[in-house]
Design a binder for these strands. Structure first.
Length: 289
DNA sequence: GAAGGGCCTTTGAG
DNA sequence: ACTCAAAGGCCCT
């Protein structure tokens, strides 16, 4: 019988679990009842819910210390959001954005799943990316059980490399299917060292990622920010582009590349955080219309 | 070499 | 029924 390990992590820094899990960084967390979210952190399938001042988890195996270490790393509790907020205190154009999204955090993801997520994100939408990713997992692996809830791990490189393009198209990936199969093959056959990028510089890692089919500047920056700790990355998608142009370049022509360099100059290693706030804010504003 | 346009799949909303 | 948009990238000009 699995033991029911329930514990919690004290939260000092601003933290909004729902906003963070539903901000389009990760795509396979699901709400299993009114308060719990089910997903995977590190090697632990678990349930999470937030209570005042703490993050409560339920995991059916493992040691509390190690689970909490994994949670700490996953939610980047080593970053201070207060420092981020303070650094942009003088920018009136950001104050409302920060205020509306307090506690939104970047997540430190496993690179392989992150890569596939954002290859699948191209001209898609968040509900669909979630369905695609979940369909891939259900097709290739068997679920873990936490309490009564099934949680599917994401397939390994070798497991996904066994899928044919046609099979992925049947899951609804569309033209992105060929990118996923090609990338899986390249990594599985050691033609591309994904995990080695952790020690590379931002520029080197970005150039390397962009050599993969289906990975351009935007997707590369997502992977760099979300799983390789390169927080100067600034993914420019249609929401962020619109937001930045409205706020800072009303009457000036800028390309996406211009926006990236401008943001890095302005926000440095906080650019990744600012981008996530702008993205989330613009998306929520749009949803209300 | 930079920039712009067409094309790629599927799904849901209006 | 039809059109549009959705965390873009690739290829051609």
């Amino acid at each position: 019988m699995p033991k029911n390990l329930i514990g919690s992590l004290e939260l000092e820094d601003p933290f909004d679990l729902v906003a963070t899990l539903e901000s389009g960084q990760v795509f396979r967390w699901r709400r299993v009842d009114s308060k719990w979210y089910a997903g995977i952190v590190g090697r632990y399938p678990l349930l999470l819910r937030q209570e005042p001042g703490k993050l409560v988890y339920r995991c059916d195996f493992g040691i509390a210390n190690e689970i909490e270490e994994a949670l700490f790393a996953f939610f980047r509790l080593d970053d201070s959001l207060l420092d981020v907020y303070e650094s942009v205190n003088g920018d009136a154009k950001l104050s409302d954005v920060i205020k509306r999204n307090l506690g939104l955090r970047l997540i430190r993801q496993e690179p392989w799943e992150c890569l596939i997520s954002f290859v699948c994100s191209s001209v898609s939408n968040i509900p669909r990316i979630s369905r695609n990713m979940e369909a891939i997992a259900k097709k290739t692996v068997s679920p873990k059980l936490v309490d009564t809830h099934s949680i599917y791990p994401f397939p390994t490189v070798a497991q996904l490399a066994n899928c044919r393009e046609e099979e992925l198209r049947e899951l609804g990936l569309g033209f992105r299917a060929k990118y996923v199969t090609r990338i899986s093959w390249l990594i599985a056959n050691e033609q591309f060292d994904l995990f080695g990028l952790k020690s590379a510089s931002y520029n080197d890692a970005k150039t390397a990622l962009m050599s993969l089919p289906g990975v351009g500047a935007k997707v590369a920056d997502c992977i760099l920010v979300f799983s390789f700790d390169k927080l100067q990355g600034f993914p420019v998608d249609r929401w962020v582009r619109r937001s930045i142009k409205e706020r800072y370049f009303e009457n000036t022509y800028v390309t996406d590349t211009d926006i990236v360099s401008w943001a890095q100059e302005r926000w440095g290693s906080y650019a990744g955080y600012i981008q996530q706030y702008l993205f989330q804010d613009q998306r929520l504003i749009n949803a209300r219309r």
